[in-house]
């Protein structure tokens, strides 16, 4: 399946792009992260410490164990600093 993967804040800067289409059969977010890390150093660097990252699946905050079945959009970003 094809998933839109979005990056925000320093994750976007470290990976060097805001959004890309990713072809994957990963069953969970965590497996998708492993696939991305295996691509290039910039991905490995961005995903080195998952405790410093948050993830949203189809615009809902979730965790790295979340399933990807039928998902259209996955976003990775640091803890939010709104307000």
């Amino acid at each position: 399946m094809t998933v839109d993967v979005l990056y925000f804040a320093w994750v976007r800067e470290r990976i060097g792009l805001p959004k890309e289409k990713v072809e994957t059969d990963a069953p969970t977010v965590a497996v998708l992260v492993e696939e991305l890390k295996a691509r290039e150093d910039r991905y490995a660097a961005a995903f080195a410490d998952l405790s410093a990252l948050r993830v949203a699946v189809d615009q809902e905050l979730t965790d790295f164990d979340a399933p990807l079945d039928g998902v259209r959009e996955v976003a990775f970003f640091p803890p939010m600093t709104g307000g």
Binding site: L61, F77, P79, M80, G82
Partner: peptide, 14 residues
């Protein structure tokens, strides 16, 4: 609302 906007609304400040 303020407490949740700080940590749960998808904004990032630089």
């Amino acid at each position: 609302l303020m407490d949740y906007l700080k940590s749960r609304a998808p904004f990032w400040k630089k």
